[in-house]
Write a protein that binds this DNA or RNA. Structure first.
Length: 727
RNA sequence: GGUGCGGUGCUGGAAUUGGUAUACAGGUUAGUCUCAAAAACUAAUGGUGGCAACACCACGAGGGUUCGAAUCCCUCCCGCACCACCA
């Protein structure tokens, strides 16, 4: 029988679905919530890079299930967003239709990859059942004063005709279309994330995240401690108040560098100093004005020299003046979007009562279908004839006007992981029981570069936690552990893109090699978190490995002749078996999937060479170790070749026994002056006996040659490992 | 400019509580099988010298600590990522 991945994979996926082996426990005892960052179902198909993280969480989910954990491993769709709307403008196809068509394709791709999601927990942020609760949370924030509307200069993209958050402006350009962003005064809704700035920093200490991602969060928040000092009516912010007596000018934010003609008093010296406009001072940081201290600050020095301002260097003052103040780079989050395909902001405007929230029982405020979503500088919802129907002030009951803007899609992804634990609850965002059963997220996998998503999601969680919307006992961080897969580059070492024609999709690989090969290759490519280059010969290598495993299982099993035509004793092979189980277990826990596979390969090689040692027991363990990585072939081998009862994925993960991890003999390295000169093999019992090892080592011919000429000055003995003679 | 991460065979990478460098793959070469090819299998594969035993040299470069350094410290070079007039 040859390895026919097509037959095997389709067959087992059908069986798994019928037998519902991935259904989530209703009553978890030992829980693990394992989560991917959910995808935006775009028109471009998923490529092998997207799959990397999904395979990793699938391996973890299968592994922890086998270890007796109750696992929640859901998947859903970040379905609102600009691309679907832009597509609609171009083609006339409604975003709801194109998005859901895409979801079907994505889901199919995930399925053929053998991913063990429980689709009963699927969510879709564009469904009224979901966004009803997005609106609920928005209103709860408004009630707490955390959502407010104000006129503000905002970043405006003239091409997309929408405002952008600071985070969506890259080098002064729109992150989506690269159009230069302009400033425009508009009335906008903001969320007061700045109230949480300090907690968003301090919370990082207790969570298991990559240091670089934590650092990015800290930089983004950009906390700096300093003082506000008054120079007459001009306030400046400084982090070095002790240098105020050396301040020789004031600079306020301006377009070009020029003297204003004004002078103000330096409160530390009582001297009159000039007020300048300077382009290097930013309007929206601190007070928009600085004190110029050319003696201690490089940029101030450059400015002073250029404009012939005097430079004075005095020792620091001991007495600090001004008021202590903490400044942040982080701004309040602008969430209004003048767009259609998003969650409507559930607010109404009443002439007498200003902005009011729609009553909870009237939610959701649904997106109208009768809109013209061509951009005309205002929200498409304003063009709907039905959208304003029934809008009334919750206080006086008179007719009111609905907010026509929608929310930034980052709002949806800021709390979706909460909804996943109780996705069908019609009465609450999430029930207390469900939140206590599963939250917080234990393993979160996705791009570490998404600073904003992680910051916003932590902010929402902290709010929900403070308000008791999720149980307070769950702590105030939502993602206990985070790991980010490294990019997979195309075969030409460039980022996969249509433009380069170097996109590799699962459909390019699975029909020919199978999902198991794809999964094994992706995990074997290199360390999970580093950038890797796609290489087809590597895929063939992974396929060769699975074929080799297949052939190994076809060999006759005959325990009676074990040890007869093999140089390996039972003890030795048990040592290798148990060591493999130990390392694979530890490697999976630590996301070291590449070395886990390498160790399985080593064991396969051992069994292939010493085929007389093959037993059902050993092959069974091998199939189990392989199961998280290559679920289909493992199942076929487990059930059909080894005739085991039930699914390998429902079997109990093998335990290793410490007693087998001690072999009979040990290799001791012998060094002379730190250089390896020989090796001796000694019985394990004496491997830590310095005197006996020393005696044996000196007798070794190769070693003797190097020590005969001189007297041994020193001997260093590391038990079980090595002995070093210094001559 | 700042901060962080990294640099190991022909290639991807193992090895980091200091203790036998190059696990596991990929590639290449030779061989077996075949009319031939593919597949599969076997062997070799860091460099230099040597028939060989063996020796010396190699973990970006240089230095240091140590009996012993890919691993720790210092200086420099290179690459990647994020932030960037942040007062």
């Amino acid at each position: 029988m040859i390895y026919d991945h097509k037959k095997i994979e389709a067959k087992w996926r059908e069986v798994w679905e019928k037998e519902e082996i991935y259904k989530t426990s209703k009553n978890p005892k030992k829980k693990k919530y394992i989560l991917d960052m959910f995808p935006y179902p775009s028109g471009a198909t998923m490529h092998v890079g997207h799959l990397e993280g999904y395979v990793a969480t699938d391996i973890l989910s299968r592994f922890y299930r086998m270890r007796g954990y109750d696992v929640l491993h859901p998947m859903g769709w970040d379905a609102f967003g600009l691309p679907a709307e832009n597509y609609a403008i171009k083609t006339g196809i409604h975003p709801d239709k194109s998005t859901h068509d895409n979801i079907k394709i994505f889901k199919k791709q995930l399925d053929v990859s053998g991913l063990s999601y429980d689709w009963d927990y699927e969510i879709d942020t564009s469904s009224p059942e979901f966004y009803k609760w997005t609106q609920t949370i928005f209103i709860k924030m408004w009630q707490k004063g955390l959502a407010y509307k104000k006129k503000a200069p905002v970043n405006w993209c003239p091409k997309d005709e929408t405002v952008l958050a600071n985070e969506q402006v890259v080098d002064g350009k729109c992150e989506r279309c690269d159009t230069p962003v302009i400033q425009k005064e508009l009335n906008q809704w903001f969320l007061k994330i700045t109230d949480y700035a300090d907690r968003l920093i301090s919370g990082l200490d207790g969570i298991n995240w990559p240091e670089e991602v934590k650092l990015q969060q800290k930089n983004w928040i950009g906390r700096s401690e300093g003082r506000i000092i008054k120079f007459d009516d001009i306030e400046v912010f400084t982090t070095r108040p002790e240098t105020v007596n050396s301040a020789t000018f004031i600079a306020v934010a301006g377009e070009s560098d020029k003297f204003t003609g004004r002078y103000v008093t330096n409160p530390a010296t009582d001297e009159k100093i000039p007020v300048w406009e300077a382009s290097y001072v930013m309007l929206d940081y601190g007070t928009g004005a600085i004190m110029g201290v050319p003696a201690y600050d490089e940029r101030d020095l450059v400015f002073a020299k250029k404009n012939k301002i005097k430079i004075v260097k005095k020792p620091y003052t001991k007495k600090l003046i001004g008021e202590p103040k903490v400044n942040y780079h982080l701004r309040d989050w602008l969430v209004s979007r003048q767009r259609y395909w998003g969650c409507p902001i559930p607010m109404v405007y009443c002439k007498d009562h200003d902005w009011q929230a729609v009553k909870f029982e009237e939610l959701p405020v649904t997106l109208p279908n009768d809109v013209d979503y061509n951009p005309r500088g205002k929200s498409p919802n304003a063009s709907s004839k039905t959208f304003q129907e029934g809008a009334k002030c919750p206080i006086c009951g008179k007719k009111a006007k609905r907010e026509v803007d929608t929310m930034d899609t980052y709002v949806d992804s800021s709390w979706y992981f909460v909804r996943f634990v109780d996705p069908k609850n019609n009465n609450k965002i999430v029930s207390v029981e469900a939140s206590k059963k599963w939250l917080p997220v234990d393993e979160y996998v996705g791009g570490g570069h998404v600073v904003q998503h992680l910051l916003f999601a932590r902010f929402f969680w902290k709010f929900m936690h403070d308000e008791g919307l999720v149980d307070k006992s769950l702590g105030d961080e939502p993602f206990l552990k985070l790991r980010a897969p490294g990019w997979i580059l195309g075969p030409d070492s460039r980022k996969m893109s249509k433009r380069w024609g170097n996109v590799v999709t699962p459909d390019d690989i699975i029909p020919k090699f199978g999902a198991d090969t794809l999964r094994v290759y992706e995990m074997f490519m290199g360390p999970f978190d580093v950038v890797k280059v796609w290489n087809l010969t590597g895929v063939e290598g992974a396929n060769r490995f699975l074929k080799k495993v297949w052939r190994l299982f076809q060999l006759p099993i005959n325990p009676a002749c074990a040890g007869r035509n093999s140089q390996l004793s039972n003890n030795e092979i048990n040592y290798k078996l148990h060591k493999t189980v130990k390392s694979v277990t530890e490697d999976i826990e630590n996301y070291k999937f590449n070395t886990a596979i390498a160790k399985i390969m080593e064991f396969v090689n051992v069994l292939t060479v010493h085929s007389s040692q093959i037993t059902v027991h050993k092959l069974g363990i091998l199939a189990q170790l392989l199961a998280p990585f290559a679920p289909h072939i493992a199942e076929e081998l487990w059930q059909n070749v080894l005739k085991q009862k039930g699914s390998v994925h429902a079997s109990e993960w093998p335990e290793y026994d410490e007693k087998y991890l001690v072999s009979n003999e040990m290799n001791i390295a012998v060094q002379v002056n730190g250089k390896l000169r020989g090796q001796i093999t000694v019985p394990t019992q004496i491997a830590s006996d310095e005197l006996r090892v020393k005696t044996l080592a000196k007798k070794n011919k190769k070693v003797a040659k190097w020590i005969e000429s001189g007297r041994i000055k020193k001997e260093i003995f590391v038990p079980n490992k090595l002995i070093n003679f210094v001559v």
